[in-house]
Simulated scan of single mutants.
Amino acid sequence: MLGEDSPLPDTAADVEDLALRLRGHVSQLGALTPSQEPALLRAQQLCSGGLPDGYMPSRVHLVRLAEATQDLIAAVQAHDVAPAKSVQRRRWWKPPINVLRGAVFALALACVVLAASVPRT
């Protein structure tokens, strides 16, 4: 977004989409940053305001929001906060139906063979 070669968004919908994405990034980074961090407060202040009307004011707001997001990233890296790892539940292997049928057949056959091998009294 802030690269020299990257063009400004053309439509108002593009501006709204980018602003929404940057607000999402700010909220995610805000969880990793101390609450009194100046970069976080600036980014939250920019996010709380609405998108200005007009071509240039909306693009300027978008650039400021992107700069605030970059400052927030730098603040998170400066505080050396590791991102929280999500807890993953163990997924059990779900066998195909034919494997289950084969296992049931093998168990039944083993029971028949065992029953046949027991001497009769």
Rank of each mutant, 00 (worst) to 15 (best):
L114I: 10
G50V: 08
R64Q: 13
G50M: 11
C111Y: 04
H61R: 12
F105N: 11
M1K: 01
R120Q: 12
S35H: 06
L114S: 12
R64P: 00
P57N: 06
R59C: 00
L41C: 04
A13H: 08
R120Y: 11
L22E: 02
A115C: 09
R21M: 08
T11W: 00
V118P: 03
Q88S: 12
E4A: 13
A82H: 10
S58V: 04
H25W: 09
S86P: 12
V118A: 09
R42A: 11
A116R: 10
R64S: 09
H61M: 03
L65R: 03
A110Y: 05
A82F: 10
R21P: 02
K85C: 07
V87H: 13
F105V: 15
L20E: 14
G50A: 15
A78Q: 03
R59G: 02
L22P: 05
L114P: 05
M56I: 12
V81C: 06
S58A: 15
L22F: 09
L32H: 08
V104H: 08
A108T: 14
P38K: 08
G3R: 00
L109A: 15
A13I: 09
T33C: 11
L51E: 03
P38T: 06
P34M: 04
H79L: 02
L107T: 14
D80R: 13
C111M: 14
S86R: 14
S6V: 15
A43Y: 00
A108D: 04
P83C: 01
T121G: 12
A84P: 05
S27F: 09
R21G: 01
L46N: 04
P38F: 01
Q70C: 06
V87F: 12
L8R: 01
E37W: 04
P57Q: 09
D10Y: 10
Q88M: 12
V26K: 00
L46F: 02
A39F: 05
C111N: 01
P57S: 05
H25F: 10
V87P: 03
H25G: 13
V81N: 02
A19V: 12
S35M: 09
D14M: 11
V76G: 01
A43F: 02
N98R: 07
R89G: 10
A106R: 07
V15D: 06
R90L: 14
S58M: 00
L109G: 09
L2E: 09
D14V: 02
A75G: 07
D17H: 12
L29V: 01
P83Y: 03
A116G: 13
L18F: 05
A43R: 03
A84H: 09
